[in-house]
Design a protein around this nucleic acid. Sequence first.
DNA 1: ATAGAATATGTTTACGTAAACATATCGGTT
DNA 2: AACCGATATGTTTACGTAAACATATTCTAT
Lengths: 337, 337
Amino acid sequence: MSDGKPARPTMEDVARHAGVSQMTVSRVMSSKGYISEKVRDKVLAAARDIGYVQNRLARGLRSEQTPLIAVVLPTLGNTVFTDVLSGITDALTQNGYRPVFGLTEYSETREETLVRDLLSWRPSGIVLTGLEHSETTRQAIRASGVRVAEIMDVDGPAMECAFGLSQKAAGQHTARHLLGKGHRRFAYAGSQNGQDLRAVKRLEGFRQTLRDAGAVMISEDVSTAPSSMVEGRRLTADILSRADQPDAIYYASDDLAAGGLMHCLSNGIDVPGTLALAGFNGLPFLNALPLQLTTVETPRYEIGLQAGRFLVSDQAQEALPDGCVDLGFTLIPGQTC
Amino acid sequence: MSDGKPARPTMEDVARHAGVSQMTVSRVMSSKGYISEKVRDKVLAAARDIGYVQNRLARGLRSEQTPLIAVVLPTLGNTVFTDVLSGITDALTQNGYRPVFGLTEYSETREETLVRDLLSWRPSGIVLTGLEHSETTRQAIRASGVRVAEIMDVDGPAMECAFGLSQKAAGQHTARHLLGKGHRRFAYAGSQNGQDLRAVKRLEGFRQTLRDAGAVMISEDVSTAPSSMVEGRRLTADILSRADQPDAIYYASDDLAAGGLMHCLSNGIDVPGTLALAGFNGLPFLNALPLQLTTVETPRYEIGLQAGRFLVSDQAQEALPDGCVDLGFTLIPGQTC
DNA sequence: ATAGAATATGTTTACGTAAACATATCGGTT
DNA sequence: AACCGATATGTTTACGTAAACATATTCTAT
């Protein structure tokens, strides 16, 4: 009665119990090929009896494919990405796939390592954030033959298919809105030390529209810390402490903008009279603020959902010429500009 | 020059290139056994040259272990769980492990299916949310021999080791605080139709303390919708529309509480004069509210981190007698009670 | 009745790796 | 000089599954 190892039952064990061959068990388990009702029931009963759990490693090894999708995100510390991950997960789960993921913390080197590592699981697809990737990363993915979905950004060529929104257009749109409200002297506040390339693209769009309209960007402050309200508050205080005062601040994210708004409320600064504020993302917590913040709402969950569906479907998505699916954005006017 | 399939290179290919045996390549790749500098370099160079990527499926199948940890969470729609997941991911990544996860949406049946499915990947550990699991789930896990970490709750016996906080104590603590402020007529507002068992335990602790103090719980409203500010606002309006008015509302979560606060502010209800409010979790967005909400802060990231570390370490955690590691909570007094 | 498909099962083999078990070479001790 | 352990590599085999290739056994149409 020694055991040491419980020795998990295999198809062979199930087969013996059910009085059939291992291959028949395999057919029942994967619902492939012809199986009679009687045998199917017998096999399933036997499997249940002895507590059989299939071995995906063996299955994947032999069949050369896995119901696994690799997901590469910068961080989970930002609602944006957990929303996207939520969408991806839902899409995958509905199709019997599972996400395996890793975080880059906005580092290209880590992305390389991570992609390589994730590919060792022989996933059938991979989700990457953004359109910018090192040649090493691209090569590894190309060589592996997995399907790729890039998310969040559609301003550029996709490896295969991208799902997101035009970050540049979002920046332009916000700028036009602020200009339309009569603002002329702008400041920008960002975080993450400019490693968030989507934020950089929004800023570029914003700048361009200002330039075209002859308005000025007084200052651009980018902290090294991750995006947070506290950071937004600090940045705002900083910006307003200088001689040259803006009449509007464009923030890289809603967190920062909300922090800015807090600073203004605490210091009796009239918003939007003296200072206008605009954020980005349309996070739900904005509804908890005393003033509705002007922001751009992004279809985060939808982006994840569609990217996930794309990877698990067999037919290619109908996309824009450059392989991008633009899911758009919505400017929420708000009361802060 | 036909290809069809790129045929990913194997250790055999690397071996041929480097002029060694496949086993030597295996030793280099897994850093096991003796390998001379010279051969190691040669093998690594060959691997790089031909773009070798190890096959984790084969490796896992043969070695009967994988650097995979299954993670079962109710949802990603709640910051609580994304924070925990963040901690888990960090702990795993630092040790060369990867999370594979699935969501239960608070359904016990889905948990069963999910656990079964995740175990088919032969992970070396699994993270479960809460201490309540069906016998089927327990049995499947026991039979698989994987290590288990249960998170969020320590009010009960753990399968192996639990990391979290006493939800009951948190409820009691909040009740005592409210009672201490002179409140006597309470209402409770929850969501998720009571499927969040941690919230139920908090409520039980809360009720018990009220009972002991001779205070009354006027009403308990639990909506079926997931927790959100909008829902909290609706629930609050509902509660206050009745004849019997409470002087304090205990919410199952900060989202709900924040919604309640919004309702009060919009309707000129004096907080905490007329009505006191208390939430749970200590979410960062509370700092964006005009009034600091009274809440209980939970060490979510830390819980994930420790649970993850526990699963990837080889020695057992030193824990409380019942296998629980209580990471505590902090009551944030705030201005709403 | 009988060919020919559709249905239902079995046998053999390979997926890529590492464990188990050799074997060979070296440096140091006696 | 003979021996031993540490170092370094090779050979064989098995992990659990499904693809490829049989082989029965039914149906169905003529």
